[in-house]
């Protein structure tokens, strides 16, 4: 049976359109909803002396807003951090404090 026997591999040709063409295409990129740091009402502040480099904040941060450095210490990307507080909640040594923003997302 020839059912699942695919003999020739036929790849299509991607050819640029020749008339005015605007398809709904995007590419993954930061800031698809802008600088989401402005959404924040509280900001996480990392107390570096307490940090044990367990990376749990980096693992759980939904936003990719915890920047992991080469020595596994961490920093917050305040441009994008939405201030959800998950990093502070999962930190096993209380090394992240949530402090109120003076105004939404001031950096």
């Amino acid at each position: 049976m020839g059912e699942n026997k695919i003999t020739s591999s036929q790849t299509c040709v991607i050819e640029p359109p020749k008339t005015f063409f605007w398809a709904p295409l995007s590419k993954p990129a930061p800031a698809a909803s802008g600088k989401t740091g402005t959404w924040r009402t509280e900001r996480p502040v990392i107390i570096q002396e307490k940090c044990v480099k367990c990376l749990l904040c980096w693992l759980y941060c939904p936003e990719d807003a915890i920047i992991r450095k080469e020595d596994n210490s961490v920093e917050v990307d305040y441009e994008y951090c939405k201030g959800c507080g998950i990093c502070a909640a999962v930190c096993p040594v209380d090394a992240i404090k949530m402090v109120p923003e003076e105004w939404g997302g001031k950096q």
Binding site: C12, V13, S26, K27
Partner: peptide, 21 residues
């Protein structure tokens, strides 16, 4: 001729089709 198309959705092209604009 072989199939021509304006784009392909695959890890090679990394295109996203159809999110909000």
């Amino acid at each position: 001729p072989p199939r021509r198309q304006p784009y392909v959705i695959s890890p090679e092209t990394n295109f996203v089709m159809g999110n909000i604009v």
